[in-house]
Amino acid sequence: MNNTGRAPAGRREGVFEREPARRVFAAELKESRVHFKEGQDEKSPTYVLLPTGARCNRVFLAGTLTEKKKQGEQNMFYRARIVDPTGTFFVMAGSYQPEAMQQIARLEPPSFVAVVGKPNVYQTPDGAVLISIRCESITQVDKDIRDQWVLDTARATLDRIDTSAQTPDGERARSEYNIDPGLFRKMVFEALAQLKI
Protein backbone atom coordinates (compact mmCIF):
# COMPACT_ATOMS: atom_id res chain seq x y z
CA MET A 1 0.00 0.00 0.00
CA ASN A 2 1.65 3.13 -1.14
CA ASN A 3 1.08 6.48 0.36
CA THR A 4 1.35 9.38 -2.02
CA GLY A 5 0.75 11.99 0.64
CA ARG A 6 3.25 13.69 2.87
CA ALA A 7 6.08 11.88 4.56
CA PRO A 8 5.74 11.39 8.32
CA ALA A 9 8.53 13.88 8.92
CA GLY A 10 6.35 16.60 7.42
CA ARG A 11 3.64 16.14 10.01
CA ARG A 12 3.20 18.65 12.72
CA GLU A 13 4.39 17.92 16.19
CA GLY A 14 1.93 17.54 19.01
CA VAL A 15 -0.70 16.08 16.75
CA PHE A 16 -2.04 12.70 17.81
CA GLU A 17 -0.57 9.92 15.75
CA ARG A 18 -2.26 6.57 15.79
CA GLU A 19 0.03 3.55 16.01
CA PRO A 20 -0.01 1.79 12.65
CA ALA A 21 -1.31 -1.77 12.48
CA ARG A 22 1.51 -3.98 11.18
CA ARG A 23 0.90 -6.69 8.62
CA VAL A 24 2.50 -9.89 9.83
CA PHE A 25 1.93 -13.56 9.04
CA ALA A 26 1.08 -15.92 11.90
CA ALA A 27 4.30 -17.88 11.44
CA GLU A 28 6.41 -14.78 11.99
CA LEU A 29 4.37 -13.41 14.90
CA LYS A 30 4.68 -16.81 16.61
CA GLU A 31 8.47 -16.41 16.74
CA SER A 32 8.30 -13.06 18.55
CA ARG A 33 9.51 -12.98 22.17
CA VAL A 34 10.58 -9.45 22.92
CA HIS A 35 7.90 -7.22 24.37
CA PHE A 36 9.10 -3.76 25.35
CA LYS A 37 7.84 -0.39 26.38
CA GLU A 38 8.92 2.90 24.90
CA GLY A 39 9.07 5.63 27.54
CA GLN A 40 8.51 5.59 31.29
CA ASP A 41 4.89 6.62 31.39
CA GLU A 42 2.22 4.21 32.55
CA LYS A 43 0.36 4.85 29.31
CA SER A 44 3.43 4.60 27.06
CA PRO A 45 2.84 2.22 24.16
CA THR A 46 4.25 -1.28 24.30
CA TYR A 47 5.68 -3.06 21.31
CA VAL A 48 6.36 -6.58 20.22
CA LEU A 49 9.60 -6.80 18.27
CA LEU A 50 9.07 -8.82 15.08
CA PRO A 51 11.92 -11.10 13.95
CA THR A 52 12.06 -9.28 10.61
CA GLY A 53 12.88 -6.11 12.53
CA ALA A 54 9.89 -3.88 13.15
CA ARG A 55 8.21 -2.80 16.33
CA CYS A 56 4.58 -3.64 16.45
CA ASN A 57 2.01 -2.09 18.77
CA ARG A 58 -0.99 -3.12 16.72
CA VAL A 59 -1.71 -5.64 13.99
CA PHE A 60 -4.24 -5.88 11.21
CA LEU A 61 -5.00 -9.33 9.90
CA ALA A 62 -7.52 -11.12 7.74
CA GLY A 63 -8.01 -14.87 7.87
CA THR A 64 -10.42 -17.65 8.60
CA LEU A 65 -12.11 -17.86 11.97
CA THR A 66 -12.03 -21.57 12.68
CA GLU A 67 -12.99 -21.74 16.31
CA LYS A 68 -14.37 -19.52 19.03
CA LYS A 69 -14.75 -20.35 22.68
CA LYS A 70 -16.44 -18.55 25.51
CA GLN A 71 -14.46 -18.80 28.75
CA GLY A 72 -14.71 -17.67 32.34
CA GLU A 73 -17.71 -17.18 34.56
CA GLN A 74 -17.45 -13.78 36.21
CA ASN A 75 -15.04 -12.30 33.72
CA MET A 76 -16.32 -13.81 30.56
CA PHE A 77 -14.10 -13.58 27.51
CA TYR A 78 -13.82 -15.04 24.05
CA ARG A 79 -10.90 -16.91 22.58
CA ALA A 80 -10.76 -17.30 18.83
CA ARG A 81 -8.41 -19.04 16.41
CA ILE A 82 -7.82 -17.32 13.12
CA VAL A 83 -5.88 -19.08 10.43
CA ASP A 84 -3.76 -17.55 7.67
CA PRO A 85 -1.72 -19.41 5.01
CA THR A 86 1.20 -19.80 7.44
CA GLY A 87 -0.37 -20.66 10.79
CA THR A 88 -2.75 -19.60 13.52
CA PHE A 89 -3.37 -16.35 15.36
CA PHE A 90 -4.77 -16.52 18.87
CA VAL A 91 -7.23 -13.71 19.38
CA MET A 92 -9.05 -12.81 22.55
CA ALA A 93 -11.68 -10.29 23.55
CA GLY A 94 -12.56 -9.69 27.17
CA SER A 95 -14.81 -7.41 29.13
CA TYR A 96 -12.49 -4.49 28.41
CA GLN A 97 -13.33 -4.92 24.72
CA PRO A 98 -17.13 -5.11 24.94
CA GLU A 99 -17.65 -4.15 21.31
CA ALA A 100 -15.23 -6.78 20.06
CA MET A 101 -16.92 -9.33 22.30
CA GLN A 102 -20.31 -8.55 20.82
CA GLN A 103 -18.83 -8.78 17.35
CA ILE A 104 -17.31 -12.20 18.02
CA ALA A 105 -20.56 -13.39 19.58
CA ARG A 106 -22.35 -12.81 16.28
CA LEU A 107 -19.79 -14.64 14.14
CA GLU A 108 -20.13 -18.29 13.16
CA PRO A 109 -17.01 -20.23 12.26
CA PRO A 110 -15.84 -20.91 9.69
CA SER A 111 -15.87 -17.45 8.15
CA PHE A 112 -13.44 -14.90 6.80
CA VAL A 113 -12.77 -12.13 9.30
CA ALA A 114 -10.65 -9.01 9.57
CA VAL A 115 -9.14 -8.20 12.97
CA VAL A 116 -7.51 -5.12 14.42
CA GLY A 117 -5.82 -5.75 17.74
CA LYS A 118 -2.82 -5.46 20.00
CA PRO A 119 -0.34 -8.31 20.38
CA ASN A 120 0.85 -9.47 23.79
CA VAL A 121 3.52 -11.97 24.80
CA TYR A 122 2.64 -14.47 27.57
CA GLN A 123 4.70 -17.12 29.23
CA THR A 124 2.88 -20.25 30.35
CA PRO A 125 3.90 -21.90 33.67
CA ASP A 126 5.77 -24.62 31.77
CA GLY A 127 7.90 -22.00 30.03
CA ALA A 128 6.27 -21.90 26.62
CA VAL A 129 5.74 -18.51 25.07
CA LEU A 130 2.39 -17.57 23.65
CA ILE A 131 1.48 -14.57 21.53
CA SER A 132 -2.13 -13.55 21.70
CA ILE A 133 -3.89 -10.63 20.14
CA ARG A 134 -6.24 -8.53 22.22
CA CYS A 135 -9.02 -7.72 19.79
CA GLU A 136 -10.12 -4.14 19.15
CA SER A 137 -12.53 -5.09 16.41
CA ILE A 138 -13.43 -8.11 14.36
CA THR A 139 -15.71 -8.06 11.34
CA GLN A 140 -16.83 -10.58 8.81
CA VAL A 141 -15.29 -10.01 5.37
CA ASP A 142 -15.10 -11.91 2.09
CA LYS A 143 -12.36 -13.92 0.43
CA ASP A 144 -11.35 -10.99 -1.75
CA ILE A 145 -10.26 -9.07 1.33
CA ARG A 146 -8.44 -12.06 2.79
CA ASP A 147 -6.51 -12.37 -0.48
CA GLN A 148 -5.73 -8.64 -0.54
CA TRP A 149 -4.40 -9.01 2.98
CA VAL A 150 -2.10 -11.88 1.98
CA LEU A 151 -0.64 -9.72 -0.80
CA ASP A 152 -0.38 -6.72 1.52
CA THR A 153 1.32 -8.77 4.24
CA ALA A 154 3.65 -10.48 1.79
CA ARG A 155 4.75 -7.08 0.49
CA ALA A 156 5.18 -5.62 3.99
CA THR A 157 7.17 -8.66 5.16
CA LEU A 158 9.46 -8.55 2.13
CA ASP A 159 9.97 -4.82 2.71
CA ARG A 160 10.97 -5.51 6.31
CA ILE A 161 13.36 -8.27 5.26
CA ASP A 162 14.95 -6.02 2.64
CA THR A 163 15.49 -3.10 5.00
CA SER A 164 16.20 -4.91 8.27
CA ALA A 165 19.97 -4.56 7.84
CA GLN A 166 19.67 -0.77 7.84
CA THR A 167 17.29 -0.10 10.72
CA PRO A 168 17.98 -0.01 14.48
CA ASP A 169 15.00 -2.30 15.09
CA GLY A 170 16.34 -4.67 12.45
CA GLU A 171 19.69 -4.70 14.24
CA ARG A 172 18.02 -5.39 17.54
CA ALA A 173 15.90 -8.19 16.10
CA ARG A 174 18.97 -9.94 14.70
CA SER A 175 20.75 -9.87 18.04
CA GLU A 176 17.66 -10.88 20.06
CA TYR A 177 16.37 -13.67 17.86
CA ASN A 178 19.35 -15.08 16.05
CA ILE A 179 17.12 -15.82 13.09
CA ASP A 180 18.17 -14.76 9.62
CA PRO A 181 15.28 -12.55 8.42
CA GLY A 182 15.89 -14.02 4.97
CA LEU A 183 14.36 -17.28 6.20
CA PHE A 184 10.97 -15.59 6.23
CA ARG A 185 11.24 -15.19 2.46
CA LYS A 186 10.34 -18.87 2.15
CA MET A 187 7.30 -18.38 4.39
CA VAL A 188 6.15 -15.48 2.19
CA PHE A 189 6.63 -17.50 -0.96
CA GLU A 190 4.62 -20.41 0.41
CA ALA A 191 1.84 -18.11 1.57
CA LEU A 192 1.62 -16.52 -1.87
CA ALA A 193 1.75 -19.88 -3.61
CA GLN A 194 -1.59 -20.77 -2.02
CA LEU A 195 -3.38 -17.93 -3.83
CA LYS A 196 -4.84 -18.38 -7.28
CA ILE A 197 -3.18 -16.55 -10.12
Binding site: D144, D147, Q148, L151, A154, R155, L158, R185, V188, F189, L192, A193, L195, K196, I197
Partner: peptide
Protein backbone atom coordinates in the same frame (compact mmCIF):
# COMPACT_ATOMS: atom_id res chain seq x y z
CA UNK B 1 -9.85 -1.77 -3.55
CA UNK B 2 -9.91 -5.29 -4.91
CA UNK B 3 -7.60 -8.25 -5.19
CA UNK B 4 -5.25 -7.86 -8.14
CA UNK B 5 -3.78 -11.13 -9.44
CA UNK B 6 -0.97 -9.33 -11.30
CA UNK B 7 0.40 -8.15 -7.95
CA UNK B 8 0.59 -11.78 -6.92
CA UNK B 9 2.92 -12.60 -9.82
CA UNK B 10 5.21 -9.72 -8.94
CA UNK B 11 5.36 -10.66 -5.27
CA UNK B 12 6.00 -14.33 -6.06
CA UNK B 13 8.97 -13.26 -8.16
CA UNK B 14 10.19 -10.99 -5.41
CA UNK B 15 9.89 -13.64 -2.70
CA UNK B 16 11.17 -16.49 -4.84
Amino acid sequence: LHYEPEQLANLLNRAG
